[in-house]
Structure formats: structure tokens, C-alpha cells
Amino acid sequence: MTTRIHPPDAPPPHEPDDERLPCGRLLSQVWTDWEEGVTDAHRQRCPHCRAAVADLEQLETAVRALRDGAADGAAGADAADGAAAGGPGEAGAGSTASRDADIAARLTGRVMDLVRRELRPGRPLPLGEAGEDLWIMESVAARPLRAAAEEVPGVRAGSCRIAPAGTAGPAQVTVAGRPVRPTRVTVRLEIHAPLATPDLPRLAERVRRHVQAAADRHLGLDVAGVDILVTDLIDEPDSGEKGHGR
């Protein structure tokens, strides 16, 4: 029997950093300024800032429509239930309410999944050479790297954070008015290792090689380094099974 400290589907605990747009501005600050009606010359011209505001405006419109539609639907369901109450239709009213609650729960789940994907995709990561302006969102890049780690038998991948290497803030060097972005990234991956692992550093190195190979093969990311953090030791599944790769 496998003993796990964390349930199989528990999300890895981590606090995502505030996303920074390619122009150097924090996404949260751009949204705050929009909500408060604060504007400046940069935000009016910057395509990244304007795109961020457009996304938020669309979200607000969609959520408002969703809320209004849900209110109308609830009013209609209440009216139908009220008409059916007190007679043979009571059972029907209960099943209608139950079905509506089920639909509402699924809708809420879908909307929240969508909002999480839209609002918290992580930071954009550089692809290619400095002047190419090619990017991939962190959440997209993390998936093949986590899968690669789980190719090592017994390893379960947790949080995978990827960041441009060597930057603590917006790039200061510019070429033709555009910031020269870093081209390399660093990966920080948390894993659960098998309890019986005799040599954890060797296991971590093996995971590191898998991750670096995947970064090149699946993404074309230029990885400056891979930090592996063993956050837990778990009972290994039956011998011969691979890790819990997806």
C-alpha cells in the first residue's frame, strides 16, 4: 500500500509571483490603475498594457452577463417551483432545484478554472535569441517539464516555477527603444522522492537531466539551471512501475 502525505490530486502549494508584462510593468498594477482611472502615456501606447486591460474589460463584461443571466434563471426556477409546490409537482420542483444546483456547481467550476487560467498563467518566458520576441507562458512550459521529472521511477512532480535567468526586475538595457530581454531561464522544481532512495543527490541529478532534455526537446528553452527540491519522501509503488507521469 502506498502511503502519501499529500492526496494524489492535491495541488502543489506555492505562491505565484506577480506577473510582469514584457514591457516591464506589473500586471496587477496595470489592472489597479485601470480600475482607479489612472492612466499615463506608456499605458496608452504599450500593446502589452492595452492587451492586459482589454482582457480585464472582457472578463468584467462576461461575468456581468453571467451574473445577470444566472439571476434571471434563478427567478424563473423559483417561479416554476412555486407553481408546483403544494401539489403533485412537489417532487418535480425538488428534482428541478437539484438539477439546477448541479448545473450551477459545474458552471462555477468551469468559470473558476477559466479565470485561473486567464488571470494566473504565470510569467511569459523567452524563447530563441534576444531579438526574436518569442514567448511561452510559464504554465504551458511547466507541464512537459513536470512530466519529464515523473519519467524517473517513483518521482512525483510538484510545483514547477520557471523564471528568466539573471533578472530581478525589468530589463534596463534597450535596443531601438525596446528592452533587451534575457534569453535563458532557471527552473525550480519540487518533487516527492521514493522513501527507499539510497542516494537523493543522484536521484535529483537524474531528474535534472530529464528536465533539461525536455526543455530542449519540447520547448527549445535555454535553461541556465535546474534546482530540484525534494519536499517529501513517499512509499514507492510496486517495483517495475514508472513514476506517476501524465
Partner: peptide, 18 residues
């Protein structure tokens, strides 16, 4: 796709299990 379009997709599929 824009988030509005994605939300409309989510709304249309709300009556089916995800």
C-alpha cells in the same frame, strides 16, 4: 480565444459534466 468566448463555451457546456 478571448475570455468572453471561452466563458460562453463554459456556459454552453454547463449542463454536461466536465
Amino acid at each position: 480565444p478571448g475570455i468572453a468566448r471561452s466563458l460562453r463555451t463554459a456556459l454552453r457546456r454547463a449542463d454536461r459534466p466536465a
